[in-house]
Amino acid sequence: MYTLAVCAEMVFRDRPVPERAERIHEAGFEVEIWGWTRHDLDALARTPAHFSSMTGYIRGTLTDEDGAAELLRTAEQSVRAAEQLSCPRLNLHGTGLDDKGLPVVPVAGEADGPNWIAAHRTLTRIAELGESAGVVFTLENLNTAVDHPGVPFARAADTLALVAAVDRPGLRMNLDLYHAQIGEGNLIELVRRAHGLGLIGEIQIADVPGRCEPGTGEISYPAIARVLADLGYDGTVAMEAWASGDDDLALERFRSAFTL
C-alpha cells in the first residue's frame, strides 16, 4: 500500500515548523516541507519525523542557459540539505516561483519547440544529479487558472510528457491531483496512465475548490484511493492542503479518504 504524508507548510500554522513536523509524525504521517532555506534544518533533523519530500531548488528555470545553470547549482545545494533530513525526493516546477507561487519568469501561451528541447536537456542533467546522489527529483504539474498563472509546462500532460521523454530513474512526476482537477480533470484516467508508464514519483492531493482536505470539495478521493490500491501503487500520497477548520480533523479526514 501507499504511504501517507502531510505538508507541514499548510497545517498547524500557529506553531513553529519543527513542532508541526512532530505533530504530523505523532499522527502517523510522513512530513513534507517546501523551500528548505526558510527552515532550521538542524531543528527539523532533531525531530522524530520522517521527511518524504522537499523543494529541490532555490532559483532557476528549465529553458534559458543562465536559468538552467542556476537551477543545477541550487539543486546541488538542495541535495546536501536533503541528506541532512534523509529526504528521498526533491520537487521541481516548470520555472522558479516567488513567495506567492507566481513564476519569476512568466510565459505567455504554450512553450514552443526550442523551449521543450531546452527543458529536456536541463531535466536530463537534473536526473543525472539525482542518480549520482541517490535521490529522485520530481517535476510537479501546476494549475495556471487559479494558483500559478504564467508557469510553463504546467499541465499534467506536459509534465508527464517531459518526464517520459527524459526517461531516467532520477526524474519522476509529482502528480498533483488538485492542480490537475482545475486544469484538466479526468483524474482516474490520468492516474492510470501515469502509473502505467511507471513515472509517478509521488501523488499530492487537496480538494477543489479551496485547496483544503478531502471531503470539502468535489473530488471523490475514496474512489481514487481504490484505483491506487487496484493498481498496486506503493508510493507516497501527500496532503498538500489547508485545513478547512481544525487541523487534527483535517488530517483524520485525509486518513479516512485513503483508508480502504
Rank of each mutant, 00 (worst) to 15 (best):
V6S: 04
E9T: 13
V11C: 11
V11F: 02
V11Q: 04
R13D: 07
R15N: 07
P16G: 14
V17M: 04
E22N: 01
I24Y: 10
I24N: 03
W34T: 13
G35M: 14
W36M: 15
T37G: 12
R38P: 05
H39A: 06
H39V: 04
R46M: 11
R46S: 13
A49N: 04
F51K: 09
S52E: 07
S52P: 06
S53M: 14
S53Y: 04
M54A: 15
G56C: 12
R59S: 12
R59V: 15
G60L: 09
G60K: 01
L62F: 05
E65V: 10
T74F: 09
A75F: 09
A75E: 01
Q77H: 13
S78L: 11
V79C: 07
A81L: 13
A82R: 00
A82Y: 04
E83R: 13
R89D: 04
D98R: 04
V104C: 07
V104L: 14
V105A: 14
P106Q: 04
P106H: 03
G109C: 11
G113W: 14
G113L: 15
N115M: 15
I117Q: 15
R121C: 05
R121A: 15
R121H: 07
L123G: 02
R125S: 00
I126D: 00
A127V: 11
A133I: 05
V135S: 08
V136Q: 10
L139E: 00
N143L: 08
A145F: 15
D147H: 12
H148F: 12
P149E: 08
G150F: 09
V151M: 11
P152E: 06
F153V: 11
F153G: 00
A156L: 11
T159P: 01
L160R: 02
L162W: 05
V163M: 05
A164T: 15
A165Q: 11
P169S: 08
P169H: 12
P169T: 06
G170C: 03
R172P: 01
D176W: 02
D176Q: 11
L177W: 09
H179K: 05
I182L: 13
N186P: 03
E189H: 13
L190D: 05
V191I: 14
R193W: 05
R193H: 12
R193D: 09
H195S: 00
H195A: 01
H195R: 10
G198S: 10
I200W: 04
I200N: 11
G201Y: 08
Q204K: 13
Q204G: 10
I205E: 09
V208I: 08
P209R: 00
C212R: 14
E213K: 08
E213M: 07
G217K: 07
I219G: 01
S220V: 12
S220C: 14
Y221E: 04
A223L: 02
I224P: 02
R226C: 09
R226I: 09
R226F: 03
V227N: 02
A229F: 12
Y233N: 01
D234C: 10
D234H: 13
D234P: 00
M239D: 10
E240I: 03
A241K: 07
A243L: 08
S244P: 04
D246R: 02
D246I: 10
D248N: 13
D248F: 06
L249I: 14
E252I: 01
F254I: 12
R255A: 12
S256G: 11
A257R: 03
L260D: 15
L260F: 14
L260R: 14
L260G: 15
